[in-house]
Structures are given as structure tokens and as C-alpha cells.
Design a protein around this nucleic acid. Structure first.
Lengths: 214, 214
DNA sequence: AGCCGCACTAAGCGCTCGCTCACCCTTGCC
DNA sequence: GGCAAGGGTGAGCGAGCGCTTAGTGCGGCT
């Protein structure tokens, strides 16, 4: 029995792979701060303070403030790719897989809103190299969704003229959840996920009443 | 003959109401800079430099850097409300009005992407008072779109279960255009507007082939 | 016991930020 | 021509930034 790694809490336990404990606390503090105020408005003193450490402690675990953002962004994007890949490669009709992809992707953006905000909206704050790496992961995200839609068009389940444009719109809809979703608002992540899955099925011409009721 | 006010250029001529000429140039420079790097990453020296002035000149026309953002945000939101109001109060079926609202709103976000970016994504950088004022304008934006959708439901043209949720999704889709649209990309603002109008009609259950072909 | 290694801190360096102030030109009125 | 008004500038203030460095306390080897 090693250290008790399984934590409870509403947001699964992400960041499990960040290994020195102090480094993980700093990273978590940075996610919170970046999500609240944005990367440029966040100070290293604020991050260290939230983690209960002195400002200098940050530089033992991370070379720069930007490295923190880079790490957060990469881990977050990898999680996003994983979520969509799982849904895309599951069994079921294209409509079922698309609904599953959208609802789980939306749940991730709504439930882990702090993380998703940083991941989706602070890309421009990265330097050119880190940014290029992240853009590669974004292309994978796009490819997974486009794959499902192409499948549906091929089988005749979907009626889509502009596959790439529709893919973009579907992803855009999901991502923007991170901007407006409010934890104290009237909707749960599950409700938004279900609503959005329905809307997306309509967008691809697989009306909810055709496929989602199986 | 007064000063030649009619400018050419792809983006109409907005900011016509900002009256001392130097103040308008500063505001325009601020829009560019905020859109490129974000509010917090933009320096007052950068803004003044883009406008061809010294750093101190900014403070003759604006009390603080935040006042610049506030002015930009208010003018932009008023323009957004105006666009949607015009479409909502036009004649025509709910489907025609919704398609019109979405396509013109999307064209505004895509074509004036620099402005739209600042307007939609820098809201959190405002202080509490300015922010509250802008949120009032956002509620008007929401109300205009919701009004059209409610009309469509009432007449039976639309099939929508969750009117408020669908309104949110439609607006979210349009707004996020400002995040991803690329002027050098393969799509024109008009093409995106047409695509999105079609997708939104599908979302409300007024399939494109029912109404958009008139 | 002695001591190395390392996570961490207190203090502060150099720099740039938002913003101010004393002064200077141009313009228009008498 | 004299002069007030106001848009503009050069220099620079205090503050806070990202980040560094010298030193401290502690755990685990030998």
C-alpha cells in the first residue's frame, strides 16, 4: 500500500501524474488563479501564496511561470483528446458515439470549468514552441470529432454538407461552455451535456427522435 | 469641405461616435492591442505607440487604461444589441428572422474579429461597476434571441424543449466565432454566417429545407 | 555522530508597469 | 502683437513584477 492517492471530490482526481506533492499543489494553485484572473493578471506571488509557500518555492519545481501554463495546457489537452477518443472508438451507431462524445466533452468543460478555462483560453499566452505543440493536440481533437461525423455521413445516418465546418461548430459549441458555465447556476454539467448532445444530433441531421431514443 | 471622414476598408467605419480624432485613434489602437495580446498583457506605452503618440497623451483623453476597455466594451455591446434587435424586429417568419439574426451576428464576429474578441473575452478585466453595466447589455442580447425562438415555438415553426438553454447555445455558438475565426483562413465571414444560420435552424427543429429556401 | 543533499525561505535585484508633472508648441480671439 | 486654452511631450515617480541568491532546517545515509 503506497500513499493514499484516491481522493474524493467532484472533479475526479486530475493532476495525479504531477509527482512531487509540492509541485502538484503549485500547479493546482496556478490553475485556480489563471482561471480566475487570466495568466497575465496572475502573479507568481499569488500562485505560491495559494499553495501555502513562499514566492521562491515556485522556481524549485518550475523554471518559469510560463512552464506552469504549458504543463497545465498539455495535461488538459491530453485529457480532452482522451475523452473524445474514448467516445469515438466506442461501439454503437455514429449518432450514439457523437452524442456520447459531445455529452462527455461538455461535462468535462462544465464540471472542471477552472481547468477548461485555462486550457481553452490561455493558449495565446504560451510562447511559440509550446503553442505549436498544443496546436498539434488540438488537431487531434478536431480529427476525432470529424471522424465520427464522417462515419455518420458514410452510413447515411447524418445529413451534413460541410463536414469540416460542422465539426468546427460542434467543437466550438462545446468549448464555449467553459466561458459561460456557472457552477452556481441553474444547470448541472449533466443537464448541459444532455441538452448539447441533442442539439448536436439535430445539427448533423440525425434528429434526436431518430437515434437518441435508440 | 470638412475632414474626409469616409474611410474605405473591410470593416465599415465603426467608432465614428468617438469624437476628438486623437481619442478615436487611441481607442482603435487599444482595440488592436487588446485583441492581439489581451488587456493585461497590453501596456499603455504600446497603445500610445500604435496611435503615434507619447505614453502621456493617452491620459489627456482617458482617465485610466480601464476606461479605454470600458468604452470599447460598451460601444461594441451596443452594436451587438443593435444588430440582433434589427433582425428580431424585421418582418418575416421566425425562421427567417432567426437565420438573419445568426448570420449577421456571425458576420460581425468574424469580420470585426479584433473588436469582437475584446468585447466578448475581456469582460472579466473590467471593474465591478463597468462590468455590471455591460452585463445589462448582455441580458438584452439574450432577450432578443430568446424572443425570436419563443415566437417560433408559439407559431409551431420551431420544436424546442428548453428555450433558455437553446438560446444560450445559439449565442454561444455565434460568440465563439470570435475565438477561432482566422482572416487568412479558408472561409469568408459570409460563408460562416450562412453555415451557422443553417445549423441553428436545424437546432431549433426548423430544418433548413423547410424555411431557409423560402 | 557527522554530514551531505535538497526542499524551502528572506531578502532583494533589475526592470517595466500605470500614471503624473512641468513644460512647450499651436491655434484663435482681442 | 499679446495671451489664454488646450493638446501634446520628456522625464521620471512609486509600486509591483518575474526571478535569483545566500542561507536555513531537516531527513536519511554511513
Amino acid at each position: 500500500m503506497s500513499t493514499a492517492e484516491e481522493t474524493a471530490g467532484g472533479e475526479a482526481q486530475p493532476w495525479g501524474e504531477v509527482t512531487p506533492d509540492a509541485a502538484r499543489r503549485l500547479l493546482l494553485a496556478a490553475v485556480e488563479a489563471f482561471a480566475e484572473r487570466g495568466y497575465h493578471a496572475t502573479t507568481t506571488r499569488d500562485i505560491a501564496g495559494r499553495a501555502g509557500m513562499s514566492p521562491a518555492a515556485l522556481y524549485i519545481h518550475y523554471k518559469t511561470k510560463e512552464e506552469l501554463l504549458h504543463r497545465i495546457s498539455r495535461i488538459g489537452h491530453e485529457k480532452a483528446v482522451e475523452i473524445l477518443r474514448t467516445a469515438a472508438r466506442a461501439e454503437g451507431s455514429p449518432a450514439e458515439r457523437l452524442a456520447d462524445a459531445v455529452s462527455s466533452f461538455v461535462r468535462w468543460h462544465a464540471g472542471g470549468r477552472t481547468t477548461a478555462r485555462v486550457v481553452q483560453y490561455e493558449l495565446d499566452s504560451l510562447g511559440p514552441d509550446a503553442r505549436a505543440e498544443i496546436l498539434g493536440l488540438r488537431r487531434q481533437v478536431d480529427a476525432e470529432v470529424r471522424g465520427i461525423i464522417e462515419d455518420g455521413v458514410r452510413t447515411g445516418d447524418f445529413d451534413v454538407v460541410d463536414v469540416q465546418g460542422t465539426t468546427l461548430a460542434v467543437l466550438s459549441l462545446c468549448i464555449d461552455v467553459a466561458r459561460w458555465f456557472n457552477v452556481d447556476g441553474p444547470r448541472t454539467p449533466e443537464e448541459v451535456g444532455a441538452l448539447y448532445a441533442d442539439l448536436v444530433l439535430r445539427m448533423v441531421g440525425a434528429g434526436a427522435r431518430g437515434a437518441a431514443q435508440r
